[in-house]
């Protein structure tokens, strides 16, 4: 995954993102590399503040200007480096080829515009449709996500949370993107609605052959949706591989800790075995392995130098020296 050969579809190489805040430098992403193949789904898993959303926003280049101090590395989309492009050339990719489903449907929609207009916006901009044609398409998209087009002229506040998320999905898929970045698409929803939305995304993805980067902290969602998985901790990918490799043979102590933290519905466990402690402060990351202060297996060597990304089996990588 982290080799030099780039993938035909999407390859992220050595991505680093720094924010500045109150004179301090926040190391949000620290050398992340991964590939996504056409039509496949990669799960980016990690806890709050691990840098998952920053990685996603880097791909679309929608990081907040005022706070972003530096973005380094390459993001190859069909062989072209998105980060090296002038912004004018980059812009046409957004929304048309690469689009994003935002985490919180309550805030992702414009409260002052009816939903049909919000869906047509991208169609007018990217596909050159006139307003009437875009409106017809917008109605079709609404029907596709299971909302009657009778409600196209309603405002976001007139919809429930699950329906708002469907509208957000309709906007993201309106231009048939090749890559969909879904940032915690179901976190704000109830389980029965989550089931509906996940089924919808999976259906549409199969229909349109869209690749997806699914950002989540929920390993159940990953098990349900993804082909491959990357576990993110403190801005680094600590373990990556196929879904089977990660779920059947979790190897990095952090990955094992994540699985231990989950009360599993199919098992009776008396006591959870969570990861002790807290994620590190991104303004002051520990030297060596970023996880070593919380790691039950840490040795002195863990606090020194760069930790190499070892290949355990073809495609299964783990950033740990004690395995």
């Amino acid at each position: 995954m982290a080799d030099n050969k780039i993938c035909d579809f999407l390859s992220v190489r050595d991505l680093e993102v720094e924010y500045s805040s109150g004179g301090e430098v926040i190391h949000a992403v620290n050398g992340v590399s991964f590939d996504v193949e056409s039509g496949k789904t990669l799960g980016l898993v990690g806890e709050t503040g691990a840098g998952k959303t920053t990685i996603a926003k880097s791909i679309l280049r929608i990081l907040p200007d005022h706070a972003t101090k530096a973005v380094r590395g390459q993001i190859f989309y069909k062989g072209q480096d998105l980060l090296a492009m002038p912004l004018d050339e980059m812009r046409p990719f957004r929304g048309s080829q690469i689009s994003m489903i935002f985490q919180d449907p309550m805030t992702a929609l414009n409260p002052t515009k009816v939903v049909a207009d919000q869906i047509s916006e991208g169609l007018v901009l990217h596909q050159g449709l006139d307003k009437a044609a875009a409106r017809v398409e917008a109605n079709k998209m609404l029907e596709m996500v299971g909302i009657s087009s009778d409600r196209a002229d309603e405002y976001p506040h007139q919809f429930s949370g699950g329906m708002k998320q469907r509208v957000v999905i309709a906007i993201a898929l309106a231009c048939n993107p090749l890559l969909l970045i879904a940032d915690e698409p179901t976190t704000a929803l109830d389980v029965t609605i989550q089931a509906q939305v996940l089924d919808l995304i999976a259906d549409l993805k199969a229909k349109l052959n869209t690749a997806m980067i699914l950002i989540t902290h929920d390993l159940g969602v990953v098990a349900d949706q993804c082909d491959s998985v990357a576990i993110v901790y403190a801005g680094q990918i600590v373990e990556s591989g196929s879904k089977e490799q990660i779920f059947d043979h979790p190897t990095h102590p952090y990955t094992i800790g994540l699985f231990g933290s989950l009360p599993d519905i199919s098992k009776d466990v008396d006591r959870l075995s969570p990861v002790e402690g807290l994620p590190p402060d991104p303004t002051n990351l520990p030297a060596g392995c970023k996880f070593h202060p919380r790691c039950p297996k840490a040795t002195e060597a863990c606090a020194q130098g760069e930790i190499p990304n070892k290949e355990l089996a073809p495609g299964h990588f783990c950033r740990c020296i004690n395995i």
Binding site: L219, G220, A223, K243
Partner: peptide, 11 residues
């Protein structure tokens, strides 16, 4: 339905 909607980590 509620129980069936829980996503298990048993792949």
């Amino acid at each position: 339905a509620l129980l069936s909607a829980i996503l298990s980590t048993d792949i």
